[in-house]
Amino acid sequence: MKKARTFADNGIRVAAQDGIGALIIDNPSRKNALTQAMWRAIPTAIDWLLDDARVHAIVMTGGGHTDFSAGADISEFDTVRADAGLARIYEADNSSAFEAIREARVPVIASLRGVCYGGAFGLAAAADLRIADDTAVFAIPAARLGLAYPADAVADLVRALGGQMARRALFTGQAFPASSLMACGFLSEVVVADSLDGAAFSLAKTIAANAPLSVIAAKMALRATEAQDERLLTEAAVLGAATFESADYREGRAAFREKRQPVFTGE
């Protein structure tokens, strides 16, 4: 059964079906630019997908058919980022959204077409996997606007782009085609435009068909390894050990013996 909700006056939409969630940045008249309310809604939307809909994978995409997102809605800046104090509040909202994507317990796939600029580039960098079509263009125009990019988002960019490409993106503000970001490893796949949705949701379906506890443990182990964080490493070890006591581990072995597809329950 399909479940759905909207947040931030319909600017953030979520839906879930068959263990797969969708998070849609939906402001197509402004190239899916994110208002402050939309930034603030992202963590709540992710929580809904995880805790209410109980999805096993999430696809993050833009509304309409042309763009992922132009990033923060600059038309608000005279109000919501008018001075350093307001800018710090706004940046905290950005960081909470990046964190929600980065720390979601299930894999998040960014499905990218058209413009992926500024904060939207940051959301994509926080995701686990990124697929783009051949219309996608990426840029971080912060240096051209006279503002700074949040440090936690810069860390995501360094992990996802590599140090040299992250520096080039931040220092120059120039735009990069999907082919350049495929070459540096930011993207796992580039497809023709009409194939993007199918590719992203096919990948999510493949992930969702696997043992949920194994995938959750794998994501935590990856995060812990990248961060070299002792707390996360300990949590990853606990999650990994728990898989060997799970019903899904018994089902996986039985399916292998019986030469059939396993049916996992996440228990």
Rank of each mutant, 00 (worst) to 15 (best):
T6C: 07
F201S: 09
G118F: 04
T35C: 15
I25P: 03
S188A: 15
R250C: 12
A124H: 02
A217R: 13
F98K: 05
L161T: 04
A15W: 06
F176Q: 02
I89N: 15
P141F: 09
A139D: 03
G64E: 13
D47E: 04
F244T: 12
I24K: 06
A53M: 09
G118R: 00
S195C: 14
D47L: 03
V190Y: 11
P107H: 07
V158Q: 08
T66W: 03
V154M: 12
N210P: 02
W48V: 03
G114P: 13
S75R: 00
I131R: 02
S214L: 08
V137W: 11
C116K: 00
P150F: 15
L181Q: 07
G85L: 11
F68G: 06
I20T: 08
A153H: 07
E230Y: 05
A241R: 15
R231V: 06
A97N: 05
V59T: 01
R231D: 01
R54A: 02
I131D: 00
R253P: 04
Y149W: 15
P262W: 00
Q36Y: 15
G146R: 07
V59N: 00
D83R: 15
R105E: 01
T265C: 03
I109Y: 00
G11D: 14
T135F: 07
G252F: 09
R167L: 10
A97M: 10
D134A: 08
A151H: 14
V55R: 01
H65T: 10
Q261G: 03
I101A: 05
G21W: 00
C116W: 00
R253A: 12
K205M: 11
A45I: 08
R40D: 15
D51V: 05
A247L: 11
M165V: 14
S69I: 13
R5V: 09
A33D: 15
Q17M: 09
A125K: 11
Q174Y: 10
K219G: 10
S214F: 07
I24P: 00
T6F: 08
K219A: 03
Q36F: 14
A178T: 05
A255T: 10
A8P: 00
A160F: 01
F77A: 08
A255L: 08
G118T: 04
A139F: 05
A218I: 09
N94V: 14
S179D: 01
E251W: 06
F98I: 13
R130Q: 03
G252N: 09
D133M: 09
A15C: 13
S188N: 09
D78P: 07
Q228D: 02
V263F: 03
Q228G: 03
A22Q: 00
A126N: 00
G118Y: 01
F176W: 04
D133E: 14
D152I: 13
D133P: 13
L203E: 02
Q36A: 15
A41W: 03
R105F: 06
A82L: 07
